[in-house]
Write a protein that binds this DNA or RNA. Structure first.
Lengths: 152, 152
DNA sequence: TATTGTTATACTCTATAACTATA
DNA sequence: TATAGTTATAGAGTATAACAATA
């Protein structure tokens, strides 16, 4: 190797988007490692939490909230249902839709997973002060809060 | 649909990682849309900028900095070289390595792409105050600063 | 007509392992 | 022995389009 010194970031240096991207890679790696024993990815975890917090919701509602296409959600739910964590229950009021609920096993596993995720958050963000963490959260919310009001 | 109201986020509500993830999705969507005419993804853009700012760097150096496996970088460079934006030049000092450089066309396209990226950053972060933007950048840097102390 | 869940399919991004040529 | 670039390959994650059932 010609040099062990870090490269110049050039134009990337000033981009918030670039930093966001790097932070997201770190986040994903650590999450994946921490939750691997449970076979839970960030997306699956999000689905489990949302089903827990909104028991009986439909697949479309869930898909929108975690920002997946409804077709993509099918395989994800097949996986969770195959592991006995989630159940699809035909809705009595709208026969086109399913009501999604956690099984007892799903609730138990989710409780354990949540503790792992808390530790993971502490690893990644624990070096920030409490006020810095709150600030970061606020700023990130502001970033994705907008919806494409201006045409590209 | 049973309800048009947003779902409860439950446990996700308090997670910075969840907000980071959503922000990253918004970021990627907007970037993709803005740079589609140039056939440039965030990763490709990063590669072009780093080659510009560190002309003659090796594939390994580039791979580490943008956090890709060296095998993954091959196809990316094949693409950029196929479009005439980048050139692999055998290193005279170490015959195992290539020196990566931008072509004139690469430099021209990158200049245009940078302007698009600036607009994109403004769309995403322009609603934050200048001090909020600086704060967000600082906090994101702190998050990913942990490991990989040698490359970035 | 429109919506929900599903299937079939394909595309993109990524890494792992083995190969080669050099160091 | 170790490293750089390449190839072959496979896995994960995603979306698009078409379909059946239902609204």
């Amino acid at each position: 190797m010609r040099s062990k010194h870090p490269l110049s970031l050039g134009f990337l240096e000033g981009l918030i988007g670039f930093r966001l991207r790097l932070a997201q890679i770190s986040l994903f790696e650590d999450f994946e490692r921490a939750l691997r024993p449970f076979d839970i990815t960030p997306t699956r975890f999000g689905a489990l939490v949302l089903i827990e917090a909104n028991s009986g919701l439909s697949q479309m509602q869930l898909a929108k909230t975690i920002r997946l296409d409804r077709s993509t959600l099918v395989a994800l739910l097949d996986h969770l249902e195959g592991k006995g964590l989630v159940k699809r229950r035909p809705s009595p009021t709208d026969k086109r839709t399913n009501e999604l609920v956690l099984t007892d096993e799903g609730r138990k596993l989710l409780a354990k997973a949540k503790r792992r995720v808390q530790e993971h958050e502490k690893r990644l963000f624990g070096k920030l002060s409490a006020s810095d963490r709150a600030e970061l959260k606020r700023l990130l919310e502001a970033v994705s809060a907008k919806k494409y009001n201006n045409t590209l």
